[in-house]
Design a protein around this nucleic acid. Sequence first.
DNA 1: TCAAAAGTGTTCTCAATACACCCATGA
DNA 2: TCATGGGTGTATTGAGAACACTTTTGA
Lengths: 249, 249
Amino acid sequence: MFFFAYFASRTFFLQTNNTLFMDSYADKDKFYVAVDCIIFGFDNGKLKLLVFNRKIDPYRNLLSLIGSFVKIGESVSEASVRILKEFTGLENVYMKELKTYSSVDRDPGYRCLSVAQYALIRINDEINVLIKEKGAKWVDIEEIPQLILDHNEMVTDALIRIRKISRYKPIGFELLPQKFTIPKLQMLYEAIYQRELDSRNFRKKILSFDVIIKLEEKDRVSSKKGAYLYQFDHHKYKKLQKSGYNFEV
Amino acid sequence: MFFFAYFASRTFFLQTNNTLFMDSYADKDKFYVAVDCIIFGFDNGKLKLLVFNRKIDPYRNLLSLIGSFVKIGESVSEASVRILKEFTGLENVYMKELKTYSSVDRDPGYRCLSVAQYALIRINDEINVLIKEKGAKWVDIEEIPQLILDHNEMVTDALIRIRKISRYKPIGFELLPQKFTIPKLQMLYEAIYQRELDSRNFRKKILSFDVIIKLEEKDRVSSKKGAYLYQFDHHKYKKLQKSGYNFEV
DNA sequence: TCAAAAGTGTTCTCAATACACCCATGA
DNA sequence: TCATGGGTGTATTGAGAACACTTTTGA
């Protein structure tokens, strides 16, 4: 590593290989690079997607994912963190790269490629205020509207991805409040997989992972009897992760 | 779709929103975009990586992945297909996007991001001749040499990815010749997972997938008794794929 | 008292795993 | 004849899937 840091430095090349170096880059094409975030939330028993009503051209008044151009002084992931913070106020969000969209004709305006990222966030009132200010809103994933460019394709790909990922990572907890009930967790997984799960088997499976802590409190919002609240145990999860655990529900 | 194809056309924006449109792009940064291919092969019971001895600056005489800059008139995947064809003569190769590497300091020369792709190819003599001409060579994945830039990181990430993918896709068949024996297939999976598998259980599992066809011929290269040759049944596989099959070995 | 959601156990099936010997053949 | 790799079967264990009733309580 150290060896390369030295020999590969810009100074080295400019001093010794100036012509060749310049030649090898000078005729290369440059691209606008965007980042688009597929942001999922979970509310009222439904999986939601954050979309943005564009107030500027191009595509004024059309719906789009939350996105931005990447700046020269930041990485793609830094750009996605920046844009997520701007729209939701959140930092330290679960966000992963989906893939790069780069068809020649994907943006009829300019040659631009986009690195799509998917994110899972916990919806709360504070976030919803900021979202509204920004002209963004939540839509149900079962009723995704027409979005600009190839954004609908990105959403479809992201849904496929989170279904896959959720089989071996407990991503469900990223979308729920810190305190949640098992029935709520089940509803979330049913929303992700788009199928019903057996409550007895689900409960058994989730508890067998041994990564949630039962609290004394109950949530009485969605039933009279009330359901016990649980908390995710990040500490235990980290241990399990190291031993290669499987979270398929 | 049709609606957007019409309203989002370049003409539309140039006519009606010319100023705004130009403004919104004019101040944005542009990037060199590269594609780097992590190309795996399987030979002599070992999983191999294709590396390239650079004959030009920058990084002359250092080892690198097979890569190229993306041209303005092609997508990232088109660029990776082009470069793979150039170096191996192969088309229709199993190749998937790994991820985008875009750290600000990843290339000390210029601001350049790279979309890494991993590919699985069937090694044969013809390919090896071309590879040699191009100054590339196979290295054992257990002894990956120092590569330029962040290419070692790409290789590590790609290995993790193929281990994951191989649990639910029969990628092994991409790396073997059209006709292969079960012991060879097992060696390949042992190379991917870096652990020994039980031959009885492996055979049982593989045959239970019901996607390989037993041939009458035997391969006597690696044993006196000889091992029956098999062929992958693409047709049956496609059917299974639709029903969401799991190929974990 | 009843509607609505929470919570609980058992059985069956099937796949994963562990494990050891005989077979065919060329050298 | 023997060394080398190929090929086979069974028993055990554990996880997944199917399945129905009781509990709690506010309206």
